[in-house]
Each structure stands twice: as structure tokens, then as C-alpha cells.
Amino acid sequence: MTLRASSLVKKMLAAAKSELGEKWPDVRIYAESEARKLAQTIVMIEKLKATGRISRKQADILFDMQKQTSRVVLLTVEGLGLLAAEAAVNAAVKSIRDTVNDAIGWRLV
């Protein structure tokens, strides 16, 4: 059986969507991108195996490397989210700083 990247991506995304529930819209773009790369690597491994150009050990290593790559990418996405939340909170507090400090008479905020 020949694997097709598009079918693999479709299956992976359906599973991820079901697992993530309401968080799905937030991560969809990244999940799609990483699922596509994983699927491409799997399809390449299948082609190399079919022509006897890759061993089981090499296939395992290569797939593990793709998962490690995805983890690094998704960690950046998580980090950017935290930075955005940090900036939002600080901007909100800054917006009330003068009002609060003037009213209280201390530099509270």
C-alpha cells in the first residue's frame, strides 16, 4: 500500500481536533503545518524502504528527529503566546496607572 501525505495529514488533524476541543482554533495553523511535515517524512521513509535504501533503525531515527523538530516549533508557539499575554496584562495595568496613582496619592501601580 502506498501512503499519501494528504490522507495522513487529514487523519492526524481529525485526531488532534477531537483531542484539543475548544483549543483547536488557536493551534490549528501550527498543527496543520507540523502534521504536513510529519506526513512528508513518513511518505519519504516509505519510498526509501520500498527501494531498500533505508534500514529500520534509520527510519526510527529520522522519524524521531521530525518529532523533535515539531516540539521545538510548538514550544516557540507556546512561548509567543505567553509573551503576548504578558504584554497584554502590562499594557492594561499601564493604562490605569496614572488614574490609580493620582487617586490614591501613592505610586501604587
Binding site: 495553523i29 507556546e78 495595568v93 501601580v109
Partner: peptide, 22 residues
């Protein structure tokens, strides 16, 4: 660009941290 933090989680985070900040 959207980030993987749900709205509910962000609001909860915001409220609790606003108190800490103030």
C-alpha cells in the same frame, strides 16, 4: 497571528495577575 492560549484561560490569567500587579 493567533497563539495557543484559550480565551477563558487568558481572562483568568489576566484577572488573577492584575490583582497581583496592583
Amino acid at each position: 497571528m493567533t497563539y495557543p492560549i484559550s480565551r477563558a484561560r487568558t481572562v483568568a490569567l489576566f484577572c488573577s495577575l492584575a490583582i497581583v500587579l496592583i
